[in-house]
């Protein structure tokens, strides 16, 4: 035999993910493309299940299908003329080359053929990867053995996020970023008082009038009462 059930499932999942991804980049119907992207995300969640990482599988479904796919679908729906228009992609060739390069890089880093690179002499990278022995890119200890995931991986993961020696700083930065984004969204979408809106419009009109006047004086033309500014202020 030699073929385990896990391998069969892996191949099926990989076929789903790759097929869906191929559909996404070739279809002209953006809505269907977005749906297929969601299917590809679901397939990736399947890989996590295969790796015994339930938490990451569920997080994948929640974040990528429940949030990001919906955001993409929404932007497709709200884009003007999306149904009538047949979008064309002028950058397909460049993106294909980039993707191929990325694939080669990943294959070299993680694949059976190892790319070894000595970083001792490189100015910035050698300080980043400061270790006793010269750090070698491409010799990442990538675990693809059959070692089972520890039972406590969820709490280990949680502790790693709040451990000052591990990921506390990135975690706080992301939390800060999310807070800023939330505050910004509230600021943009808040209900404004009519007086506030009026004042803002008048301010803009006044600025425009001043600019127009400055332009005219610069051109040497005689200044005229700005009727355009007045109409804006009337609104």
């Amino acid at each position: 035999m030699g073929i385990t059930v896990q391998q069969v499932i892996f191949v099926c999942l990989a076929a789903i993910v790759l097929g869906a991804a191929l559909f996404v980049v070739t279809t002209r119907n953006l809505f269907r493309g977005a749906l297929m992207l969601a299917l590809a995300f679901l397939g990736v969640a399947g890989f996590y299940v295969l790796l015994d990482l339930g938490l990451f599988a569920v997080a994948q479904v929640m974040i990528y299908i429940g949030a990001i796919s919906i955001l993409i679908i929404f932007s497709v729906m709200l884009t003007c003329g999306m149904q009538a228009m047949i979008p064309r992609n002028a950058q397909a060739g460049g993106v294909a080359i980039l993707a191929a390069l990325l694939f080669v890089l990943l294959a070299l880093v993680f694949g059976p053929v190892r790319l070894t690179l000595d970083l001792t002499g490189v100015p910035l990278l050698s300080t980043l990867f400061r270790t006793e022995t010269p750090r070698v890119v491409g010799d990442v200890p990538w675990r693809y053995n059959t070692q089972a995931v520890a039972e406590t991986y969820i709490s280990d993961f949680g502790r790693a996020l709040v451990d000052i020696n591990q990921f506390l700083l990135p975690f706080l930065l992301i939390a800060f970023l999310v807070d800023v984004v939330l505050a910004g969204a509230i600021l943009i979408a808040r209900q404004r008082k009519p007086a506030e809106v009026l004042a803002e419009q008048q301010e803009i009109a006044a600025e425009e009038a001043a600019e127009a006047a400055a332009l005219r004086t610069a051109e040497g033309a005689p200044a005229m009462p700005s009727t355009a500014a007045a109409t804006v202020a009337d609104h």
């Binding site: 339930g54 479904v61 299908i65 429940g66």
Partner: peptide, 18 residues
Amino acid sequence: NLNVGVFFILAIGSGSII
């Protein structure tokens, strides 16, 4: 018996939006 059962229910709920 998923050890992330509660989270799973939430994720499935968000899937039905699609």
